[in-house]
């Protein structure tokens, strides 16, 4: 199991919905075809209003025009992250773009489940509001055993909530791996 994720922060606001994460017009691409599924990375977070993209300044596209990967690996969000539709394409698109973890104040239930059960990325809950304490481009280090986030750019560190009751699924790498390990399937 991984114990550490390092990456650059991309900061978003409250209520980032699944239409902003991956607009419906892109849901038609195959999720398994390697060439076609790259497009999910290309359009990840493409409908976030540009003024709110990459806070505090905004106007920072998550993925540069024409590219399939983002320069950012850790997303910082506010409340109700991932609200909206049940599309598993949303955490998938973020994973395709290279995101490994999200740290938000709270999540919409289906998005949270999809991140965990699909094993796409780690959804952590913060204990307070991190939006104002982390800027897009800050260098972050996320410790998965202690649940501590260190901001190397500012020198701050934050204790995150322990995702205890879903930890066995996260550790296994998703619902199916968990079920196989525990002999359910």
């Amino acid at each position: 199991m991984r114990t550490l994720i390092t990456g650059t922060a991309y900061v978003l606001g409250d209520h980032i919905d699944t239409d902003q994460i991956i607009p419906a017009e892109h849901l038609v691409y195959s999720l398994t075809d390697p060439e076609e599924s790259k497009k999910y990375g290309m359009y990840a977070l493409s409908a976030v209003p540009i003024a709110q993209a990459g806070l505090p300044d905004g106007n920072i596209p998550f993925v540069k025009e024409g590219e399939y990967h983002s320069m950012y690996q850790i997303i910082i969000g506010g409340i109700n992250f991932g609200c909206g539709s049940s599309r598993e394409h949303a955490p998938f698109a973020l994973q395709k773009a290279g995101v490994r973890a999200i740290i938000a104040e709270s999540y919409a239930r289906i998005f949270y489940r999809n991140c965990v059960d699909g094993g796409f990325l780690l959804p952590y809950e913060s204990t307070g509001r991190l939006l104002d304490r982390i800027a897009t481009g800050d260098l972050l280090e996320l410790h998965l055993t202690t649940h501590i986030l260190i901001n190397h750019t500012s020198g701050d560190s934050f204790q995150l909530k322990n995702p205890d009751d879903v930890l066995p699924i996260i550790d296994a790498g998703g619902l199916f791996e968990y079920a196989r390990k525990s002999g359910m399937i």
């Binding site: 599309r87 999809n114 059960d117 699909g118 199916f176 359910m184 399937i185």
Partner: peptide, 20 residues
């Protein structure tokens, strides 16, 4: 209630799902 594809695939094969 709504679920994603992984949860749905799990139900499709087992008829079961975890929920809080």
């Amino acid at each position: 209630t709504g679920i994603g594809n992984t949860d749905a695939a799990f139900i499709l094969g087992t008829g079961k799902i975890w929920e809080k």
